[in-house]
């Protein structure tokens, strides 16, 4: 695997049109994300933000009508979800699913080793893995009991989100897509989650934050802010755009979009 440098093209979405259950959700979306960048995608409810996140991760319920998605020179849409994950695409779920009986730690170890195999690296053994996960758990302020629990089993909303970020810090993805990671978090949990995300801001990685509120962006400062409305990006800017949205809401952009 060649080393990824700051500024390399990580994700290139061109004119993406996608349906869910016969309904057209994405209507010609373009987005370019380069290594070392953090992009925030904001927008009103129902604009297609989560649809975009799920499509990038490969959920099968979406029908791609046209357009292309290129990830590190590969056709992302041609890859199965597990192949995307092994190549470094990570989705932090808005609603992480509970899987009783499947041990958290074993899943994460299997996930890490699947990624390492793909990259031609040696798998980590249980001993090495425990060292890795204990360090990351400290960063995410998670206690030992977590090691014994089933995947998200009986977790509070905040714990589930923290678990997603913990997974991300262990898997060290090339492209992380965090879908509404801030929803349902109190201010303390938001700080912990942000610390976890910020620890991964590096030259060889790109992060897409999907969020409804600007609050998260006080803690994870994005390089670019995009407004997704009516199935396409209607405005892009820097962090000040988020502040402007906070003040003015989305209506002026949505109207502008339909006028244009």
């Amino acid at each position: 695997m060649t080393q990824i440098q700051r500024g390399d093209l990580v994700l290139d979405i061109k004119n993406l049109v996608a349906n869910v259950a016969g309904r057209n959700i994405l209507k010609g979306l373009d987005l370019t994300v380069r290594a070392g960048e953090v992009h925030a995608i904001m927008g009103p409810n129902g604009a297609g933000k989560s649809t975009l996140a799920q499509i990038l991760a490969g959920r099968p319920d979406y029908e791609i009508k046209s357009g292309t998605v290129t990830y590190l020179d590969e056709d992302l849409l041609a890859l199965a979800p597990e192949e995307r994950a092994r190549r470094g695409v990570f989705l932090g779920f808005q609603y992480p699913v509970e899987i009783p009986g499947v041990n958290n730690v074993y899943l994460l170890k299997a996930a890490l080793n699947a990624r390492r195999r793909q990259a031609g690296l040696q798998e980590v053994d249980a001993f090495e893995f425990m060292a890795i996960i204990r360090e990351k758990m400290k960063l995410m302020k998670m206690d030992e009991s977590f090691l014994k629990r089933g995947v998200n089993e009986g977790f509070s909303g905040g714990e589930k989100k923290r678990n997603e970020i913990l997974q991300m810090t262990v898997l060290e993805p090339t492209l992380a897509i965090l879908d509404e990671t801030d929803s349902g978090l109190d201010i303390d949990a938001l700080k912990v989650v942000s610390t976890g995300v910020n620890s991964l801001r590096q030259d060889d990685r790109a992060i897409i934050l999907v969020t409804h509120y600007q609050r998260l962006l006080d803690y994870i400062v994005p390089d670019y802010v995009h407004v997704l409305a009516g199935g396409r990006i209607v405005r892009s800017g820097d962090r000040t755009l988020a502040l402007e949205l906070e003040e003015r809401g989305y209506d002026w952009l949505v109207e502008g979009s339909s006028a244009a």
């Binding site: 979800p81 597990e82 996930a111 699947a114």
Partner: peptide, 17 residues
């Protein structure tokens, strides 16, 4: 889908569940 999105192959994910 959650297990697949973490890189488990389909057969393994089904068996684990």
């Amino acid at each position: 889908f959650y297990l697949l999105s973490r890189g488990l192959d389909r057969d393994t994910a089904r068996a684990v569940l």
